[in-house]
């Protein structure tokens, strides 16, 4: 059985919602350009052809998975290890998709797939808050994802063609964009007292286990622990 959508107007996916989500996330998405560029530069340095670099950003659209792939870019390619690492660094998408399921699963399957294809940390963070505040158009999620995708791919192209001309994003403070964005979204949620304990538990676990678990798994463990704390605490 599907998780039920929140009561109210029906859940929809419209072009107007896509535009709204895209406009809302555009200021954040612009900052993705230098990271796309960093990937383009790193991939070119690893010997990937320009067509392969551009195709990879277009069809994968996951910085973590793409940078991890570069670590395996040797001969012979270890396909099994590559698949496992891609799964590990992307497994948090499963959690993001589950958290969005009350809204996304109210749509017909083709529209679900369309909306989730562009799922990333940033448009999840923005959309989940909007959905909880009454947004009913899942196009908001898709629009946010599309502007992220466009910026990621433009950045990749710049890096693949002209990477050596670009400076270090850290000099401009651009390397902290995503973590600041997530921190700001979490801070906004702390107004709900019920969010404080799950946030504290998740932060502490991910911080403390980063050196002891494979890449990405510390985030998954911490998020699951935060979810469980939320269940146990409010059940008492």
């Amino acid at each position: 059985m599907d998780t039920q959508p929140p009561p109210g107007r029906p859940i929809i996916l419209t072009f107007a919602g896509v535009l709204r989500g895209g406009r809302r996330l555009l200021p954040v998405a612009t900052f993705v350009l230098p990271f796309g560029t960093a990937f383009g530069v790193a991939a070119a340095e690893k010997g990937m052809e320009v067509a392969q670099i551009l195709a990879m950003s277009a069809v994968v659209f996951s910085g973590a998975a793409q940078f991890a792939t570069l670590d395996f870019w040797t001969t012979p390619l270890a396909f099994g290890s590559l698949a496992l690492v891609a799964l590990a660094v992307n497994a948090r998408h499963i959690i993001l998709g589950a958290a969005l399921s009350p809204w996304v699963n109210a749509l017909p399957p083709p529209k679900r797939v369309m909306a989730l294809t562009m799922l990333s940390d940033a448009n999840f963070a923005d959309s989940h808050v909007a959905f909880k505040s009454g947004e009913r158009d899942v196009g908001y999620l898709l629009g946010g994802g599309l502007v992220m995708w466009v910026n990621w791919n433009v950045g990749t192209a710049i890096g693949a063609f002209a990477g050596s001309l670009i400076g270090d994003p850290a000099a401009f403070g651009l390397d902290v964009v995503m973590v600041c964005f997530f921190g700001a979204i979490v801070a906004a949620q702390l107004k709900r007292r019920t969010a404080i304990l799950p946030v504290a538990v998740a932060f502490a676990i991910s911080f403390g286990t980063v050196d002891h678990l494979p890449t990405g798994w510390n985030v998954i463990l911490a998020a699951l622990a935060g979810g469980l704390v939320s269940v146990v605490r409010r059940a008492r």
Binding site: D121, V186, F203, I205, A222, V229
Partner: peptide, 9 residues
């Protein structure tokens, strides 16, 4: 909210 806090941590 935990997954975002975990990403920050």
């Amino acid at each position: 909210v935990s997954v975002l806090a975990a990403l920050v941590g």
